[in-house]
Design a protein around this nucleic acid. Structure first.
Lengths: 190, 190
DNA sequence: GTCTATATCAGGATAGAC
DNA sequence: GTCTATCCTGATATAGAC
């Protein structure tokens, strides 16, 4: 892995663990095993490096979600697979957490990938639900867009609850709860 | 308002806007119109002041929730009232956001009120749902604890979506969505 | 490309005068 | 109780040598 890559990976980890405001160039360099000069040779500064890191994380996240949501199976199966996918609940969402970072939200360039990722995810889930409705798997009364927003929000909020509690328990409960609520909208197979 | 009170109020605002890591003693003092000496006279340092601020915010939040959740009406009415209560979605939750602050999570004293508030809220909502079930308002199949976790998570996550989008739209959709899902569990009145 | 030196400013606090 | 002076460290870079 090149030095530039190691710098990006270290930044990704630190942004996840400590956020943008809580991450210093020095900490990034140390974790990457790179010197100051090296970092400022490859990147113009902290925002530039953060942008590269955030973009990479955003892409990975969308790719992973797309894989699960475009798999074969009913809409409900795919949503459940997405929600049950392996996650480190206590670490939180590497994209969602940036939403609480004042300096990220203040910089349009840094904010854009965060906005786009979450918007894409809602949109993608809405399409899955819409498909389920069209196929008659799901109740016609179910609002795809609103429900998609609820699913993404539940996931994001479940991370918050897990971190507050220092336990995955409330995370699992929130996921169980939303899937339970959704189940009531699954139409019986003929 | 006393100087100590102004310091606490300024800290509450700044913690909400910028988080713990992003809030400096100097910024607190300036907003409160107090000098350094004044701040260090009333509080031992930033963590001490933050603790006072977080506790006050936590208490207010629980009091507000209790007011709405203990009001007369069906379980569904009260949950809806709580979810629809006036909120500045773009500002996020002043308690939930602390969950993303590494220094807050690392300090047991600062973390405790965050943990307790969110745990209490889940518990309180679970009781409301349980009551609804006992009264026959809600479907017996509904799991009160899991559903309560889902409701709190949806709210917390809805803030994340609103902030990412820079719009209250996804917040409203998430709330609409979860209430829609819940509605399917309301039993018809005899 | 990477290193070391240097610079500036902010964070977070202490000390002692008033 | 509040103010000012002072202190030390870390954040975020720039400059120039190697």
């Amino acid at each position: 892995m090149s030095t530039a890559d190691r710098l990006i990976e270290s930044t990704r980890e630190l942004l996840w663990e400590r956020g943008y405001v809580g991450t210093s160039p020095k900490a990034i360099q140390q974790r990457a095993g790179a010197g100051q000069g090296s970092m400022y040779h490859h990147f113009t500064g902290k925002p530039d490096l953060a942008l590269a890191a955030i973009r990479r994380t955003a892409e990975e996240m969308c790719a992973k979600a797309e894989e699960l949501l475009s798999a074969p199976g009913t809409a409900m199966d795919r949503v459940a697979a997405y929600l049950h996918r392996e996650r480190d609940a206590l670490k939180g969402c590497p994209i969602g957490r940036l939403t609480q970072d004042p300096d990220v939200m203040a910089d349009p360039a840094l904010r854009a990938p965060v906005d786009e990722t979450l918007a894409w995810l809602r949109e993608r889930l809405a399409r899955v639900l819409e498909e389920g409705r069209e196929r008659g798997e799901l109740d016609a009364a179910l609002d795809p867009r609103a429900t998609a927003a609820t699913i993404v929000a539940t996931l994001q909020g479940a991370y918050v609850l897990a971190r507050a509690a220092g336990s995955v328990r409330p995370f699992d409960q929130a996921i169980t709860g939303v899937l339970g609520l959704l189940t009531a909208h699954v139409r019986p197979t003929e």
